[in-house]
Simulated assay, not measured.
Amino acid sequence: MLSREKLLNLKEQYMTDPQSLAKIDMVIQTLAALDHQQLPLHRLPNLLEDVKSLSRHPERLLLDDALAELRETLIVNYGLWFLPNTDWVKDLARFAGPRPIVELMAGNAALSAALEAQGHVVKAVDNLDWSGQDNERPVPWTTVSKQAALTAVKESLRKADDPNSQPIFVMAWAPDTSDDDWQILQYLRSQSQPFHLIVIGEKNGATNSKQFWQEADLELNDVLNQHYRAFDMIQDAVYLVH
């Protein structure tokens, strides 16, 4: 995994390569922010070189291998499976407007904490069944209601006074080991009112169930993706789901 010491050693090795140095510095700044339960201000670029670039710069292979460890570092050290940033959180808050946000499967609820810092009304829910697996124990950034995602959806819709007060549901990096995401989508579709579901994940890849991707009607929203990009081999994106 990536440590500050490892990153500083890489800086010394790539001191004459401005492009590599820029990547290393961005990762150092990102981890320093997370150490204080703060999100990075801006999105990371894709940190990994493509095959063509590595063939021209084989000296960057060592760095490429090291930066490929960032995802595991985020999961194990911080309980984060995806990496939002402050610019993107502002986009999400503006998109939501006055509607509250419910973060489903929130994990350590870094996104919810950042939204709260923006003054947005948000509720984070998670059943916390991932504790002791990829990450030893949850260390939430804000209050997390221990609740199954589908239960939270049903409860939130019951409490909504009218369609205009219905929350926006955000589900980031749902596991590919259950069909909870598909159950949620089925339930939302079964209701008589329109719904708002935002999913962050890799289509037909590392996140979510196969049935979800097969059945979901996806919109790759420009506003919600302008400050969100993949930073490694996993090509996750932000989708509006209908």
Score class of each variant (00 low, 15 high):
2 L>D: 03
6 K>Q: 15
8 L>S: 06
10 L>N: 02
11 K>M: 15
11 K>R: 15
13 Q>S: 08
14 Y>P: 01
14 Y>S: 04
20 S>C: 15
27 V>L: 10
28 I>A: 03
29 Q>H: 06
30 T>D: 01
32 A>T: 14
32 A>D: 14
40 P>A: 12
40 P>R: 13
41 L>H: 13
41 L>M: 07
43 R>P: 11
44 L>G: 09
45 P>H: 14
46 N>K: 13
50 D>I: 06
52 K>A: 04
54 L>T: 01
54 L>H: 03
55 S>M: 13
56 R>P: 03
59 E>V: 14
61 L>C: 08
66 A>Q: 15
72 E>A: 11
73 T>V: 04
74 L>I: 08
75 I>H: 01
78 Y>I: 05
79 G>P: 02
79 G>T: 02
86 T>W: 04
88 W>T: 01
89 V>H: 01
91 D>A: 05
93 A>D: 05
94 R>S: 02
99 R>Y: 05
100 P>V: 12
100 P>F: 15
101 I>C: 07
105 M>G: 14
106 A>E: 01
106 A>V: 03
107 G>M: 12
107 G>R: 07
109 A>S: 09
109 A>Y: 12
116 E>R: 14
119 G>F: 15
120 H>W: 15
123 K>L: 11
128 L>I: 01
129 D>V: 10
131 S>F: 03
134 D>V: 04
136 E>W: 09
136 E>P: 00
140 P>V: 09
143 T>F: 13
145 S>F: 05
147 Q>E: 05
147 Q>T: 09
150 L>H: 08
151 T>Y: 03
151 T>R: 04
153 V>R: 11
153 V>Q: 06
156 S>N: 08
158 R>V: 11
158 R>Y: 08
161 D>E: 12
162 D>Q: 07
162 D>P: 02
163 P>G: 08
164 N>W: 11
164 N>D: 11
165 S>C: 07
167 P>A: 11
174 A>E: 03
176 D>Q: 14
177 T>P: 00
177 T>C: 09
182 W>E: 06
183 Q>K: 12
184 I>F: 06
185 L>W: 13
185 L>H: 06
186 Q>W: 01
187 Y>S: 01
194 P>R: 08
198 I>M: 05
198 I>W: 06
200 I>E: 04
200 I>K: 03
201 G>M: 12
201 G>N: 03
202 E>F: 11
204 N>M: 10
205 G>Q: 09
205 G>Y: 13
206 A>P: 04
207 T>M: 09
209 S>L: 04
210 K>F: 12
212 F>L: 01
213 W>V: 00
214 Q>C: 01
217 D>V: 10
218 L>Y: 00
219 E>I: 10
220 L>V: 01
221 N>T: 05
222 D>T: 04
222 D>K: 10
224 L>A: 00
225 N>F: 11
228 Y>W: 10
229 R>M: 06
230 A>F: 02
236 D>M: 05
238 V>W: 07
238 V>Y: 02
241 V>Y: 07
